[in-house]
């Protein structure tokens, strides 16, 4: 007689616990579709280089929350910058981040992104694992951290997995930017100048 209630409770618990095991299909589909769009935008032969860059940036703006990443990257200083400093910094950071990502993803342009799994950290925070095949046949393992607000999803960080060394780009940028700010008395101007220099260097190389 007691068997039914125990089985029922176990089943109910399993159903409650199960959703944390993998991200919902919508998050995975979101990454699959948008990551492929981003890579395809770099490989459209009908567009000029300037038009391709613009298309890439438009996709990235939809796919990722670059302003949120910019604030995260300067950590405690995001509350210390004046409004004007924050605007200038976000503008410089956006330019830098898009240039870095464009440069990096260029190696994988036109390739397909395959979702291999996902994990929910909580109801609004998921990690989606993907594999991208480069043009020379190498497999790259990329993780996308996707946050959900309301019914909208956006990527806030990307990780590369090299021999078990998982590299989260925004977290690394935060460590480096905070060090720059710590060593310059929190000067937003110095940071913006540095970011603009780096962007110019990448474009010039």
């Amino acid at each position: 007689m007691m068997k039914f209630p125990i089985t029922f409770i176990a089943l109910a618990l399993a159903i409650i616990v199960q959703p944390t095991a993998s991200a919902d299909a919508i998050t995975e589909a979101y990454v699959q579709e948008n990551a492929n769009d981003v890579l395809n935008s770099l490989n459209n032969p009908e567009l000029s280089p300037a038009e391709r860059r613009l298309a890439f940036q438009e996709y990235m703006d939809q796919f990722a929350n670059i302003n949120a990443v910019a604030r995260f990257v300067v950590g405690k200083y995001s509350r210390r910058f004046s409004d004007q400093e924050m605007l200038e910094y976000q503008d410089a950071f956006r330019d830098y981040a898009l240039t870095v990502y464009e440069n990096y993803f260029d190696e994988y342009k036109g390739q397909s992104v395959f979702v291999s799994g996902s994990t929910d950290r909580n109801a609004r925070d998921s990690i989606v694992d993907t594999t991208i095949l480069s043009s020379d046949g190498r497999e790259m393992y990329v993780r996308w951290r996707v946050l959900k607000r309301g019914d909208k999803y956006q990527v806030v960080d990307v990780a590369l997995n090299t021999d078990g060394n998982v590299i989260w780009l925004a977290i690394e940028q935060q460590a480096q930017f905070l060090s720059i700010l710590d060593r310059s008395n929190g000067s937003a101007q110095d940071l913006v100048a540095k970011i603009r220099d780096m962007t110019a260097d990448i474009r010039g190389s």
Binding site: N67, R71, F72, R79, R121, R124, I127, Q154, V156
Partner: peptide, 19 residues
Amino acid sequence: PFADLPDFDDGDFFDDADW
């Protein structure tokens, strides 16, 4: 691998205008 990830919602990183 996800235990030490920072919580983006912990800081003032999100502006509702960005979403």
